[in-house]
């Protein structure tokens, strides 16, 4: 437990010291969301209708931003080998790293999502529901990104590979988060169901992805 806490704190420090913490993905998401109205035009009806999907999509892309660093740095500087030698299982370490990634790097996504939803003309409750959907989806996004990051660790130009691996697996989250916003906007009463599905996917990812990450890392270290 102590070791896991130490790893968690280390991830936090590394994220905020060298990587600017949440600034990278947040700036990416903000920039993407600021460009969308320029691309599809300022028509408020279209913007409002597109908001849930566009915001969920921007959050998904933002979650991929830090995936390369999640394991790539630890592999190249040998930290991962020390982790593997320690009595703590790589599975638990992977889960902790994903948790640190969410809490230190990705946390602004729901906030930005809320602000952007309001700016795109969604009403308060719908924007809140969408934001809550992002909160529930973030662990899943981070775990799948981390899984892709672990598979691609140490590969040249890993970023492209990570996007190709993670994006198909993150599709359900994209569908459910956008579904929350759209259902809330249209008042179909299915927002709750979509919320629960997003949460369920995150839980399923929590149950499976750490084992996948650990297996991928073990292969790397052999």
């Amino acid at each position: 437990m102590k070791a896991l806490r130490a790893v968690f704190v280390r991830e936090w420090r590394l994220a905020s010291a060298g990587g600017g913490g949440p600034a990278g993905p947040a700036a990416f998401m903000l920039a993407a969301l600021a460009l969308v109205p320029l691309a599809i035009g300022p028509d408020p009806d279209i913007l409002r209708a597109a908001a849930p999907g566009v915001i969920a999509f921007a959050a998904l892309l933002a979650s991929l931003q830090g995936a390369e660093r999640m394991f790539g740095d630890d592999l190249s500087d040998g930290t991962l080998e020390l982790y593997a030698l320690s009595p703590v299982s790589l599975t638990a370490l992977s889960a902790i790293k994903a948790a640190a990634y969410v809490s230190a790097v990705l946390w602004p996504a729901p906030v930005i999502g809320f602000v952007a939803a309001m700016a795109y003309g969604m009403d308060g409750p719908s924007a809140g529901a969408l934001s809550l959907g992002l909160v529930l989806a973030l662990p899943g996004l981070a775990l799948v990104s981390g899984f892709a990051g672990a598979l691609a660790a140490g590969v040249k130009r890993a970023g492209l590979l990570i996007a190709l691996i993670a994006a198909p697996l993150q599709v359900p989250l994209l569908v459910f988060v956008a579904g929350v916003g759209r259902a809330a906007l249209e008042g179909t009463g299915l927002a709750g169901a979509n919320l629960m599905l997003a949460g369920a996917f995150s839980l399923a990812a929590l149950a499976l992805a750490p084992f996948g990450m650990a297996a991928a890392l073990k292969g790397r270290l052999e």
Binding site: A152, V155, R157, L161, L164, G212, A216, G219, R220
Partner: peptide, 19 residues
């Protein structure tokens, strides 16, 4: 793409299998 990106044959096979 994953298999092609990893040079070591055995590593590529393992990573591919997990994916």
């Amino acid at each position: 793409a994953l298999r092609a990106a990893i040079e070591d044959e055995r590593l590529a096979a393992r990573a591919g299998a997990i994916l």
